[in-house]
Simulated scan of single mutants.
Amino acid sequence: MNLYFRLFWLLAWRSRRCGSIDFLGTSRISYRALPSDCDINFHLTNSRYPAFMDLARIYMLAGMGVLSRFIKLGWIPVVNAAEFTYILGIKPLAKFEIETKIVGWDEKYFYVEQRFVSDKGLHCIAHVRAVFVCKGKQVPIESMLEEAGFDQSTPDLSAEVLKWKDFFTAKKAEQ
């Protein structure tokens, strides 16, 4: 239930007051781990990380100034894959920040890096591979870039993301 409240709060209030970021800039949003977000090990439960990441990506789109445009176009973001590296648990009532940025794209997907950080350091780093879909069809990357007003060169994907892409290729080859 608290994630619905956080989503409403994000859409109704926070996204209207978020800072402006460049298309390849880093968005930052702060949260506090409520007791209902934590598991019996007294840290943020693993299932909450992707939920918080969803909210942070919405906030990033708002900071870029494209959220309302994409909604009007009927573009729905769809996560294709995600990978997580958990480093340090987030304790109940601890404040943390989620740093979100687009790290690149290829002919089909765009790649997002999300980091959970606090004054204690890095807690989790995750990568997300996603697309936008409209009426059951994928929105071409070029259309997304055009609507976002991005006309610079494509950034090089990090070695980590390239290895992750190779992993997907290998998985498909096994089937």
Rank of each mutant, 00 (worst) to 15 (best):
G74F: 11
D37E: 08
A56S: 14
R48G: 01
R48L: 05
M53I: 14
L34N: 08
R69S: 13
D54S: 04
H43G: 04
M64S: 07
D54R: 00
A62H: 03
G74N: 10
A33W: 05
P35R: 10
P77E: 08
R48Y: 01
A56F: 02
G65C: 12
L73V: 01
L34R: 15
A33I: 01
V66A: 09
M64N: 04
L34I: 05
P77N: 05
A56P: 00
N41D: 08
C38Q: 01
S36Q: 14
T45I: 00
I71Y: 10
M64R: 03
R57S: 06
L67S: 05
P77W: 12
I58N: 00
N41H: 12
W75M: 15
R69C: 08
I71S: 11
P50E: 07
L61V: 03
C38T: 15
T45Y: 09
C38R: 05
C38H: 05
H43D: 08
N41F: 14
S36N: 14
R32F: 08
S68I: 00
C38A: 13
L34C: 06
A51M: 14
D39G: 03
L67H: 06
M60N: 12
H43P: 08
F70N: 06
T45R: 04
I58F: 12
Y49P: 04
F52A: 01
F42M: 14
D54W: 00
Y49W: 06
I40H: 05
I76S: 15
D39M: 02
D37F: 13
H43E: 07
N41K: 03
L44R: 10
H43I: 03
